[in-house]
Design a protein around this nucleic acid. Structure first.
Lengths: 158, 158
DNA sequence: GGTCATTGTAAGTTATACTAACAATTACAT
DNA sequence: ATGTAATTGTTAGTATAACTTACAATGACC
């Protein structure tokens, strides 16, 4: 559907230049980060359409898999989200049956998060989709450029 | 308030390491883009708290200023948004009194967008805030690195 | 023991992004 | 030139995400 739409645009509106003038905004780094994020987000959504998972949901699932028994606050800190936003995401993953909460016995305030069997199965599928998605993203760079990009981006998010 | 909160965190939870282990996800480029975008978005929101404008709203305002009489579809294409999303943003900017719609006489389907006097005044203020925000973002890079980052990001969003 | 911090939770707000449908207008093919 | 298709704006509805505020339960610490 996306390829079809793109083709339609190319056929019916050849007079619209690909590199439209965006004016002074071209020199704003933050604008490029937002455009790049948007492009990645859109491709991710297409890749995960059948799986019905968002970036955040996959990231949270993956984090819990890598840190069994992690508390919600732990997920929040690693993903740079606040508690309320984390709640919403964990709620959705719980509703889908991919992870389960259980009271921590070391700290009564916390809930331990763990994947269910379905969660592990889905994450395995998701990781294959991520590999595809990453391939699409990395295909335009050399290995060295990928490393450089990650290094630069890391300096932004600490 | 942000500095205060950061300080509080540093004082009350020194046992939480800054570089928490995020596991395998560390190697996913898309994850770094999302984290970087989130960090930039958060700083932008703080910088523009008094102005009560979002990234998208400023970008749209700026685009209209650089392209007087541009149609909504033109804004959408340049910002990689669909028509409905553009509508919402233009509606908000119109409600704030920063831009005005007027029927195009060359194409009856289109609306010409132009800044109001208040819109021009606000954009001027916004540009000063953007300069601050960009300074914060660029401060961690050399000029060469900024150019490289923009070049790499541009390859992602075309 | 009392005070303060942490954690999870609920409720409500805002912004964004998408789809689907519709009306008005324009473009185009035969 | 007429009928069909495409474009543009618009509305309505849905979903996600991020935020605030408030509250309860629990833990940390003097």
């Amino acid at each position: 559907m996306s390829a079809q739409r793109k083709e339609t645009v190319a056929i019916t509106t050849p007079h619209v230049p690909v590199d439209e003038d965006i004016g002074e905004i071209r020199d704003i780094v933050g604008f490029h980060i937002r455009l790049a994020h948007g492009a990645v987000y859109r491709h991710f959504t297409e890749t995960f359409a059948e799986l019905d998972l968002t970036q955040k949901q996959v990231a949270a699932l993956w984090l819990v898999a890598d840190h069994p028994g992690i508390a919600q606050i732990g997920v929040a800190q690693r993903m740079r989200m606040d508690r309320a936003t984390t709640m919403a995401i964990v709620n959705r993953l719980e509703a889908k049956g991919y992870l389960a909460r259980s009271k921590s016995h070391s700290d009564g305030r916390k809930q331990e998060l763990n994947l269910t069997r379905a969660g592990r199965r889905t994450l395995a599928t998701a990781k294959r989709a991520i590999r595809q998605h990453e391939q699409w993203l990395k295909s335009r760079f050399t290995e060295k450029e990928v490393a450089k990009l990650v290094e630069l981006l890391t300096r932004i998010h600490q």
